[in-house]
C-alpha cells in the first residue's frame, strides 16, 4: 500500500516562507551541541567525581576556586553552561509544545523557560569570569592552597 499523492494539510514548512528556518536550525543545534556536550559533561563528571581523589567529598570552595583560577576550566565550564542551558531549554520547549494545549498556559511556560535560561546563562558567565578565588577576610583553610602565596 503506497500513498501516491500525500496532500498533507500541514507540511513541516510552508513553501511560501522565506529566510532562515529557525526550527531546522534548532534541530541541527540539538545534534551538534549534543555531541559537544557528551564530551564536556563526561569530562566534567569524570574529572570532578572519579579522577579527583575523594570525588564528591572533595568538592568544596578550595576545589572550585582552584578550577576557576584556570582559564581552561573557566572556558570549559562557560561553554558547557551555554550549550547545556540552550540544549535543555529547547528540549523542554519541545515537550511543552507537545503536551500543553492551552495557549495561555503554553505561553507562560515558554516565557518561563526562556527567562530561566537567560538568567542562568548571564549569572553563570558573570560569576565564572568575575570570581575571586582568594577573597579577603576568608579563613585560609577554606581557600585554594595558592592563596597563601599572594
Amino acid at each position: 500500500m503506497t500513498i501516491d499523492n500525500p496532500n498533507y494539510a500541514y507540511p513541516a514548512r510552508s513553501t511560501k516562507r522565506r529566510g532562515i528556518n529557525l526550527e531546522k536550525a534548532g534541530w541541527i543545534f540539538m545534534r551538534v551541541s549534543g555531541v559537544v556536550l557528551i564530551v564536556l559533561i563526561f569530562g566534567h563528571l569524570f574529572y570532578n567525581l572519579m579522577w579527583t581523589p575523594g570525588g564528591i567529598q572533595a568538592i568544596d570552595f578550595g576545589f572550585v576556586g582552584g578550577k576557576f583560577a584556570n582559564p581552561f576550566w573557566q572556558w570549559y565550564d562557560v561553554i558547557m553552561l551555554w550549550l547545556a542551558i540552550i540544549h535543555g531549554s529547547n528540549g523542554v520547549r519541545t515537550i511543552v509544545n507537545d503536551y500543553v494545549h492551552n495557549k495561555t498556559v503554553r505561553g507562560v511556560l515558554l516565557w518561563a523557560i526562556l527567562l530561566a535560561g537567560a538568567v542562568l546563562i548571564v549569572l553563570g558567565t558573570l560569576i565564572t569570569f568575575t570570581f575571586d578565588p582568594c577573597p579577603t577576610g576568608a579563613s585560609a583553610e577554606l581557600l585554594p592552597s595558592f592563596c597563601a602565596d599572594l
Partner: peptide, 8 residues
Amino acid sequence: TATVRISP
C-alpha cells in the same frame, strides 16, 4: 555553583 560568589 553560583554561591561561590557569596563566600567560601
